[in-house]
């Protein structure tokens, strides 16, 4: 592997890892703070991709308005979903959580099939981001992929700021530590959970929307990303956004280079990574917080 190829693979690994982080951060927050195993989380990624496909014509293909409209819809959707379904799961055991959220996957897939059909769709890269950056004499790297990484990094920084530096972040962390005490201090935990869930949905939808131009839009894409994101959450430590960030990058690197260097075992490299890390640290890389 020459240096330019290595560089391209590094950039791909980072971009894939950061995209995984967007989805996994919401999953780990919902799991770690609210105690809900949300199998439907991958569906939000799929919904994001389909929103990018469906909303683009509405806004004449304009990328940013499409993104903004998708995010607004995602927050509203997440808020309503928590209120109508997820809020009934907090006092239930994990089996019931799994059953209901699996049911939601089926509903979302069916709705997708009815509304958009079962074809594979493409979403064009926005014209102003469609260029490439030259890496050496023979290799070029798409600007759009760099933008994906940039957006993900910006969101990660924002997420870190909100969780570590704001009153809302304190409440969210406190809620993960002791739900009953948070209530005893006058904090409306139901509203807090609704906000966390809506934010988690918005992050996954954002990931799906910005990934759509490079991954295409197809049925079942949510299930694929969900499994990898659970690997990220387990490696990073359940409930830890910092852990999810590091784990997502690790998974991105191992998956990307696994496919290049060991194509025969590419399908299991991330699971080997997970097994190795759990042998070393059974609770994952970081504790919640």
């Amino acid at each position: 592997m020459d240096f330019a190829t290595f560089l391209v693979q590094c950039l791909n690994a980072v971009q894939y890892g950061l995209l995984l982080f967007l989805v996994a951060s919401g999953l780990t927050l919902i799991f770690g703070i609210m105690g809900v195993i949300n199998l439907a989380h991958g569906s939000f990624y799929m919904i994001g991709a389909y929103l990018a496909f469906s909303l683009a014509p509405v806004f004449g293909g304009a990328f940013l308005p499409t993104l903004a409209a998708g995010l607004v819809l995602a927050v509203i959707f997440g808020y309503l979903l928590e209120w109508l379904f997820i809020s009934y799961l907090y006092e239930r055991d994990h089996l019931q959580q799994v059953l209901m959220t699996y049911g939601l996957i089926l509903v979302f897939e069916e709705l997708r099939s009815i509304l958009v059909g079962n074809d594979v769709h493409g979403v064009p890269v926005p014209g102003w981001l469609s260029g490439s950056i030259q890496l050496g004499d023979l290799m070029a790297y798409p600007v759009y992929r760099l933008v994906i990484s940039g957006v993900c990094l910006a969101v990660a920084a924002l997420l870190y700021f909100v969780i570590a530096r704001t009153r809302l972040g304190m409440m969210v962390r406190a809620g993960g530590s002791n739900r009953e005490m948070v209530q005893s201090l006058g904090i409306d935990i139901k509203f807090l959970y609704r906000v966390v869930f809506a934010a988690g949905v918005a992050l996954a939808v954002l990931a799906g929307m910005i990934a759509a131009p490079v991954s295409s839009v197809y049925p079942g894409m949510g299930a694929q990303v969900l499994i990898v994101c659970f690997v990220v959450v387990v490696i990073g430590g359940i409930g830890s956004v910092r852990g999810a960030f590091l784990a997502a990058l690790l998974v991105g690197i191992v998956d990307t280079f696994g496919k290049v260097l060991f194509p025969q075992v590419a399908g299991i490299t991330i699971y080997l990574l997970m097994a190795a890390i759990l042998l070393w640290r059974p609770e994952g890389l970081f504790r919640q917080g």
Binding site: R167, A174, S177, N178, S184, L185, G186, I187, I189, R287
Partner: peptide, 29 residues
């Protein structure tokens, strides 16, 4: 939370400190 917002504060048995928050954050949350 409504009881607490009515001016009733509670220090439970076992204290229920938020271990993942700093002392300052516990006092600010």
């Amino acid at each position: 939370d409504r009881v607490a917002r009515s001016g009733i504060a509670y220090v439970p048995e076992g204290r229920a400190i938020f271990g993942n928050l700093s002392v300052r954050e516990n006092l600010m949350v």
